[in-house]
């Protein structure tokens, strides 16, 4: 286990606790480029916390993170972005009072040679990337609070892919969307995957997960129950993992798998 992982992004024995509660408890996970890994589990299972560690929202965590086989320290969002890890947060993390271009470039503004903000160049770039995601989008002058849920989601995704991300974290990207917009986001995810970008998809929606993901990783009480390929598993088995922590035979069990499962499995064999 001590050799360097060859996955694009790997977390090993990562843990964090808040006030004595282990929100994430010695989690190890490997994530590949060109692959969608879904991270599923109940509310409070630790999905969002794990994702936030990877995106640099927490400074103090135990364990190690590898990007491209090299050990890295991610202490703030800037670090994560420097390693090509971009995050689309569940709340979208948009400054509602600013327009789309200002949000896309927030923290990484384009500037003129006098050091002032180059709003026109930023708008031009924003138009380019938004054309790819949402061809009919024209409301570049309005604050993003005036936009629809799907448009806001497009802005959040555009921000993540604008800077040549290698790895994308999407926290509940379809939770606030209607069916049509959900399909649109699914299309974008497939497109990004085809471009070789690795995606970690955090989702509640088991249908979405089966639709989009290649692998499923289930968390419960801050620990990994198991990881399984979508092709090898049924929805009911995944629900069993989420609710009871039961690992089906096709899954690679993690430390969070309930002990009963192993006994059961022994009996079945």
């Amino acid at each position: 286990m001590d050799q360097m992982p060859d996955a694009l992004v790997a977390m090993r024995d990562v843990a964090i606790s808040f006030g004595g509660i282990h929100a994430v408890d010695r989690v190890s996970i490997e994530l590949n480029g060109g692959e969608v890994t879904a991270l599923v589990g109940h509310n409070g299972a630790g999905k969002s916390t794990l994702v936030k560690i990877l995106s640099g929202a927490y400074q103090h965590y135990a364990g190690t993170i590898f990007v491209g086989g090299k050990e890295v320290a991610i202490g703030n969002p800037r670090d994560a972005k420097a390693y090509g890890i971009e995050t689309i947060h569940q709340s979208l993390a948009l400054a509602d009072n600013l327009d789309a271009a200002a949000n896309l470039f927030l923290g990484r503004e384009l500037r003129t040679r006098w050091g002032t903000l180059d709003d026109i160049a930023m708008e031009a770039e924003a138009r380019k990337v938004m054309r790819r995601l949402s061809p009919h989008f024209e409301r570049f002058k309005e604050p993003v609070k005036a936009l629809s849920g799907g448009q806001r989601q497009s802005v959040a995704i555009a921000r993540a892919i604008l800077f040549d991300a290698r790895f994308l974290i999407m926290d509940e990207p379809t939770a606030a969307l209607g069916p049509q917009e959900t399909a649109q986001v699914g299309e974008i995810i497939r497109q990004l995957k085809a471009d070789g970008i690795g995606i970690l998809l955090v989702s509640h929606d088991i249908h979405d997960v089966f639709d989009l993901a290649d692998r499923i990783c289930v968390m419960k009480n801050g620990r990994i129950v198991g990881t399984v390929r979508v092709a090898d598993v049924t929805k009911d088995e995944v629900l069993g993992m989420i609710i009871l922590g039961n690992c089906p035979p096709s899954a690679i069990p993690g430390p969070g798998a309930s002990v009963a499962t192993n006994e059961e499995r022994g009996r079945q064999r």
Binding site: N76, P77, R78, A95, L106, R108, E109
Partner: peptide, 22 residues
């Protein structure tokens, strides 16, 4: 027209988003 000003307004609009933007 300045990055500092842009950050001031971003913090006012959504402090969490500003922090997550680095």
């Amino acid at each position: 027209r300045n990055r500092f000003g842009r950050y001031v307004y971003a913090i006012g609009g959504n402090p969490e988003a500003a922090a997550l933007a680095g």
